[in-house]
Structures are given as C-alpha cells and as structure tokens.
Design a protein around this nucleic acid. Structure first.
Length: 648
RNA sequence: GGGCCCGUAGCCUAGCACGGAUUAAGGUGUCGGCCUUCGGAGCCGGAGAUCUUGGGUUCAAAUCCCAACGGGCCCGCCA
C-alpha cells in the first residue's frame, strides 16, 4: 500500500473514529469541527483531541468522564492505523500502530521518491510571482537579497503544489534615477566595464548622483540667501554638509571616476535640467533616449543575471515598466480611472481617494483593516501630465491578470501602503476578482547593525560580497575536512555549501520579522544551517553507498526505538508541512522542518547502528529508513533552492 | 497627528493564523563529557525564560481582545 500523505491517512482515521464515537455517545450534539492536534509528548499518542473540554461545559459533566465514554465507544476493528485509544486527563489520545504505519510511510517514500511530499492542490492556478525587481542602478545589496531568496522559494513551493508558476522581474526604468545613471555614463564616454557590470554601474550612479545633488544644493543655497530665508539656508547647509562628506568618501574610494565625472559635469550649465530632459525624452519614447537608457539598464541587468545564476534563481519574464508607458496601456488605465467616482481632479492633478473607495465599497473589514484606519490618498497624475509609479503599476497589474489568475508581489513591507492603494485601485476600476487574488507578500527589512544602508549614498554590502565570503569560508572548511579531494571538487562543494548557507539564512526567519545582518548569521555552518543539513544528507548517502545491496527483508515492526518512531512520524508529516508552507506562503516552515529532521537523524545516527544492526530484518528496515531520510531531506532542500549533495 | 510591522534565556530563533496537557522547544555562547562501529560540519549532559508591562475574555492565554511601553517602517506632484 502506498499513500501520498501517510500522516493524513492516520488523521482521517482518527477523525472518523472520533466522529463515530460522538454520534454514538451524544447523538444530539453537533460540533463545527473535531479538534485534533499533535500532543506535546509521544507518550500521549500521535494525535489527541481536546473536544471533551468544550463539551464538558455545555453538558455540565467532567471532561475525563466524557473522554472515557468516547474511548469506550470506539471500535478499533473498523480502523487500520489506530492501535489504541486512551483517555488521559480529559483528552482522547490516539496511538498509531507503528508496525503498519512505518511500513506504509517508508514504502510510500521509496515508491514516490523525489515526488514524495508534494501533494497537489485541488485547484491549480496560473500564478505570477513578481520578485526581486531591484532597480538597475547599482548591485543587489544584502538588504535586497532577502527578496529573491523568499520569492524563489515561494515559486518552487507553489510549483510543486501543482500551480503553474511564472516568475517575473519588473524593471523599473522609468524615473529620474535611470536618467541620472545614463547621464553619468555618457559623461564618461560610455566606457566598457572593467569589472562586474552592475558594480561598475553602481559606482557611476553613486558618484554622478552625489555630484549632481551637491550642484543642486549649492544653487538652492544661493536662492535661499537671496530671499533671506534663514531657516531654509540652515536646512540646505546641513544637507549640503552631509553630501560633501559623502563626496569625500567617494573621491577616496573611486578617485579616477570621481575626478573625471566632476570635470565633465562641471561643463554643464545645468546638469539637473539635462537629466530631466533625458527623463522626459525617455518617457516619450524618443529613439536616442530609448537606446541610451536601455543600454545602461541592460548593462546592469547583465550583472544581476550573473549573480542570480550563482544562486540558481531564474525568471520567466523580464517586464520593462517603460513598455507600459510607451504602449497605450497606461493611458487606457488613466481614461478608465478618470471615469471612476473615486478619482477627482484638483488643480490639474489627478487624485485617488482610497479612503472613500474602502468605505463605500465596504472593504475595510474584508481587507483586515480597522474602521478607524484612514487610508491616505494617492496622486495619479502630476500637474505636468506625467504619471506616477503606482499609476503605471495598475497597468502592469492588469497585464499580469490577463495572463494569470493570481498575482503575488514579493515586495518589502515599507511599500504596504502603496500596495494597498494599488489593490483599492483595482476595486475602484471594478476588478474585484483581481483585487481578491492580488497578494502583497510583505517581508521585513534587513538592516546592518552599524549604519543605515543607502544605495543612493553607496553605502551597502553587496549580495556578491556576501556570496564570495560564504564560498571562501566554505572552501576553507572543505579543505580542512577533506584535504584529499581535488581542487575542482573542493571548489564545487564550496560553492553549493556557501550559496546554500546564504539562501538558508535568508529564508529561515519568518518573513514578517526584521533581520539584522551579521556575518555570523549567514556564515553559520553548524546546526540550523544549510551546511548542517547538507552534511546530514551526505552522511545518509554514505551509509546507503556502503549498504551496497538492496534491503530485501525489512522488518518494519522492529523499528521500535523511540528515535526510530519519531523519525517515521517526522517523515510521514512532511506532506502536511509542505501544504501548510504552500497555502500560507511560509517558506520558513520548510527550513525549520528540514533542520528538525536532520537533527533527529543525527541523534539516531549516533545512537543506533544501521548496517551492523541485528537481525538482518532490523538492519534492512534501518537502511530503508535512512533511504527515506535522504529522499525527504533532498525534497525539502530542493524547495528552498539548496543542493542536497551525496558527498561534501 | 494617523496607520502598519516587530518585542520569547546574554545573543539568535520556533511556537501565535486554528487557545489546551507533566516540564514554553531549538540553536549560539557558557560549564562538563564522547577519537561510539556506518563521515566529529557530529553526539550526550548541566546551568540559563516573571513569553515587554498592565488589564480583560475563557474551564484553559506565549497564542484572542483592550491599553501602555520599547524598536523599525509608511503617510511625496519619489520609486
């Protein structure tokens, strides 16, 4: 017999038994659901119900007395996996028949192999996951790296759940910043990158924007002095000081680029205006501007792709924001918005009344907002007729829904308001269905302990640096532990161990929690890390290699040690954990699960022999158990994009 | 001023959506053990927690509700 969900099998039987007993003992009672949960201790069975506590109050009886009646009413003959039912302190405890359950679980895992655990949804959907979407201005930094790690894990999980997942990267190339970098790039004479392209672009961007900013502030200072606005003078001065110190920093770090850019930019009467001009030309889609900004953006994206390849994150579609502006899609959205009762014009500026939308369409409770929550209005169109980011995002979102049924945006929680406004815009346009299938997967910030990361100021630790460091550390470890390996083998192992460690560290914490970046967190190679799980997997594989022959006569009933039973239970529970991770979008559950399983296996490994166990039937059963462990570790690691190696 | 997120041993985290059991679970650090056969990136043991505080709901609260405190974020004709 084979089951896709062994523990679910047992759960169904327990539900059946409990329902049956309730019907028999208290036919007049109706309960909404039969509560069943895992007891804190294996001694109390494998599933337990606290039903009697609820009933006790209603019926004015003692929970224990009720529990005893229910237990008595259950006829075990009708069930196959339930070995014993008992009542302890008012609980009804179900004990699994381990001989049968181990056989079922282990046979199922062997049979299903690398497909085990991935229960398919009853309602497969076309899902678009947008993630990463770092602006092509500078390298991806560690604060942003949490995004692709979460996004990619989600994509893998939902795909395994049976959804048709498409991974999208939104390239935000419409906006002043893109013109800033393009402007600097031209001033330098469109140089060939002499390093990784995104790092190169990042330098130019930071230096250019710094010089332009100082230039602007100096002019503002003259103006303020002329009008005699002393408060303004003080404010501008302070900001100027700040930027001047950044300039000093940058000049020191990148002297040649800095000097060259300073000289070239100084030739321009008004760099600010040059940049704005380029920006306007780009939005209009003028060929020269188009060619230039796309060229610089592509350069940066080329660097991103290199990094993404290292961590094995790939996209199905790269969507340019500018394409939506140049096509009629944004203006069409605008036309429809203007007709909405929730959009009004004020002095030539188009505004969206998000609060009114939520109130009149009675959405607050539905969206989990308190009635007191006042939602800020949103500007859709500037006085000069140009659109804003969220306005363009509406067109993009509609486009996404034209090719999918569900949209998941992996975007930092600091954008919660904008994402809420976007959802309300969908409602306002009459796309209630879309709005309900629009998910903002918000994650909390990654911060550095010392200072605030700022990409504008060039203050960040890049994702590449973190990966380099992790792989370097892994290389030292491998060299120390396995000196006999060839150089190529060491490099290969170091790569998947280092990358795995980083991926795991960024997925392991609940997405809603803030993370303070420390090297210790990411370079952890011990318990509760990818390397630990990878090592455990390699250990299991090593036993299987040494077993040589197939286990022909496994006697599963001999797996009677507590450790063995806990392992079987953990393995049998993987499908349910997977479903929870998929349906509630919680990739960290997978990391927690895989670590706990590795933990249990290592304890088992140290306590009990596998190959030398007596009799043969036990040894064979333990080999099958080890095989099942290796399969489930592999399957779970795969969901978070971590390689499960046979050797390391 | 309004709103959102976070607050669990020295440090890092799990548990909270769906309230339940003697003893709040791991890791790290710390103290002490294990060259135990199959890989020591490992294993075993000790010490370490008024689950931020105060109220409330309940037979039962880390978990639900209210308030306060501490930290972060957002409220732009930026993206």
């Amino acid at each position: 017999m084979v089951s896709e969900n062994p523990f679910g099998e047992f759960r169904r039987e327990c539900e059946g038994a409990l329902g049956y007993a309730l019907e028999k003992v208290l036919p007049e009672i109706r309960v909404a659901a039969l509560p069943l949960s895992k007891p804190p201790n294996i001694e109390f069975g494998q599933l337990a119900s606290s039903l009697c506590f609820e009933l006790a109050k209603k019926l004015n009886q003692k929970p224990q007395a009720l529990a005893e009646q229910l237990v008595k009413a259950i006829d075990k003959v009708d069930f196959s996996l339930i070995a014993k039912v008992s009542s302890v302190g008012g609980y009804v405890n179900f004990h699994v028949d381990f001989a049968k359950f181990s056989a079922l679980t282990l046979a199922s895992i062997r049979q299903l192999g690398y497909g085990y655990g991935f229960l398919k949804t009853a309602k497969p959907l076309k899902v678009i996951i947008e993630h990463t979407s770092v602006n092509p201005l500078h390298p991806i930094h560690i604060g942003q790296a949490r995004n692709p790690m979460l996004g990619d894990a989600l994509a893998r999980i939902l795909q395994s759940r049976g959804h048709a997942v498409s991974k999208h990267y939104y390239i935000d190339d419409v906006g002043r910043q893109s013109s800033v970098i393009a402007y600097g790039y031209v001033k330098l004479g469109k140089p060939q990158p002499d390093e990784k392209a995104d790092h190169f672009v990042g330098k130019i961007y930071t230096v250019t924007s710094c010089i332009v900013e100082i230039n602007r502030l100096k002019k503002a200072l003259v103006m303020a002095k002329a009008v005699g606005d002393m408060d303004e003078v003080a404010r501008v001065n302070k900001e100027l000081d700040d930027w001047v110190s950044i300039a000093a920093e940058l000049k020191e770090k990148f002297p040649s680029i800095f000097d060259k850019l300073l000289a070239k930019i100084s030739e321009d009467e008004n760099p600010e205006e040059e940049i704005n001009k380029l920006n306007r030309a780009y939005e209009k889609g003028e060929p020269a501007a188009k060619a230039l900004i796309r060229e610089v953006s592509e350069l940066c994206l080329e660097g991103f792709r290199e990094t993404q390849k290292r961590v094995e994150v790939f996209y199905d579609s790269w969507d340019w924001e500018s394409d939506f502006v140049w096509s009629s899609q944004v203006s069409e959205v605008l036309q429809r918005l203007k007709a909405s009762p929730f959009v009004f014009s004020e002095g030539g500026v188009l505004e969206f009344d998000a609060e009114k939308t939520a109130r009149e369409l009675q959405l607050k409770a539905k969206l989990g907002l308190s009635e007191a929550h006042e939602i800020s209005p949103l500007t859709l169109v500037r006085a000069d007729g140009t659109t804003l980011y969220t306005t363009r995002d509406v067109a993009y979102t509609l486009w996404k829904f034209s090719r999918s049924e569900k949209v998941i945006n992996v975007i930092g929680m600091e954008q919660s308001l904008a994402q809420l406004q976007l959802k309300l815009l969908l409602y306002a346009l009459g796309y209630g269905q879309y709005a309900e299938n629009f998910v903002h997967f918000a994650y909390n910030l990654v911060t550095l302990p010392g200072y605030k990361m700022s990409s504008r100021r060039g203050r960040y630790i890049t994702f590449d640096e973190v990966l380099d460091e992790a792989v370097e550390r892994a290389y030292e470890e491998v060299s120390k532990r396995s000196p006999s390996l060839t150089e190529a083998e060491k490099r290969k192992i170091a790569s998947f161990v280092g990358v795995g460690a980083v991926r795991y560290a960024l997925v392991d914490v609940d997405a809603s929690k803030p993370v303070v970046f420390t090297w210790d967190r990411v370079l952890n190679f011990e318990t509760n890390s990818a390397p630990y799980v990878q090592y455990t997997h390699a250990r299991a594989c090593s036993i299987l290699r040494k077993a040589e022959k197939q286990p022909e006569t496994p006697a599963f009933e001999l797996l009677s040690e507590r450790l063995e039973r806990e392992l079987v239970l953990a393995l049998a529970g993987f499908p349910e954990i997977f479903v929870e991770a998929a349906d509630y979008l919680k990739p960290n559950l997978i990391a927690d699960y895989v670590n706990a399983l590795a933990d249990k296996f290592n304890t088992f490994y140290n306590a009990l022999p596998v190959l030398k166990a007596e009799p043969l039937g036990l040894s064979d059963a333990r080999v099958v158990l080890t095989d099942a462990i290796h399969i489930v570790l592999h399957n779970a690691l795969d969901l978070i994009g971590v390689v499960a190696p046979e050797k390391m």
